[in-house]
């Protein structure tokens, strides 16, 4: 079974937000909402400040609390690659999934259902990368099967130092950040 995930190189990312804009147009995300976003975290004292720039989104966790919290089964794992999806026609908009997500990756679509990153499943099923990955001018984002040791993402994880977000929240996130 494939396990889709992303590996994002924070050393190369400049935080331009092209990934965010591409997601908005590709997926027709309503104005004022975002399925992905840029977070910049600066630490340390000037001029020895460290900066990590990250393109963030739903982590498509293997132990996704949003899926367990959903009372209707609208939040579910997709057959292909364990992508976490929301079935709009099953979602009642109770927001339990939103409260259960440590990444705050979900939001209520103006039409009432809960929405979030889909890893561009419609593109992935055609063999394409998600829109955010495919537009990135710095080539800092990589998408692929984390369970396949020969995939680009697995190789990157084997060769570079990396971390994921809030592993302590215990959700087994599938997006990794190269340092």
């Amino acid at each position: 079974m494939a396990r889709f995930g992303m590996v994002i190189d924070t050393a190369k990312c400049v935080g331009c937000a092209d990934c965010v804009v591409a997601c908005e147009t590709e997926n027709n995300v309503p104005e004022g909402y975002a399925r992905d976003w840029i977070k910049q975290v600066a630490t340390g004292k000037f001029p020895n400040t460290q900066l990590e720039i990250r393109s963030e989104r739903c982590n498509h966790c293997s132990d996704a609390p949003c899926v367990t919290a959903c009372p209707t089964g609208a939040s579910h794992f997709h057959d292909v690659g364990g992508i976490v999806l929301v079935d709009h026609n099953e979602c009642i908009g109770c927001k339990a999934c939103i409260a259960s997500c440590p990444y705050d990756a979900r939001f209520v679509h103006p039409e009432g259902y809960v929405d979030k990153c889909t890893f561009c499943v419609h593109r992935v099923e055609e063999g394409l990368d998600p829109a955010c990955v495919s537009v990135c001018p710095t080539h800092c984002m990589h998408f692929g099967d984390l369970d396949d040791p020969n995939s680009e993402v697995s190789k990157l994880l084997n060769s570079r130092k990396h971390h994921s977000l809030l592993p302590e929240a215990g959700t087994k996130p599938n997006i990794f950040y190269l340092i």
Binding site: C16, A17, D18, V20, V21, A22, E24, T25, S134, V135, C136, P137, H139
Partner: peptide
């Protein structure tokens, strides 16, 4: 690959 403004 365009920049965010190009995409936008």
């Amino acid at each position: 690959r365009l920049c965010p403004r190009g995409t936008g």
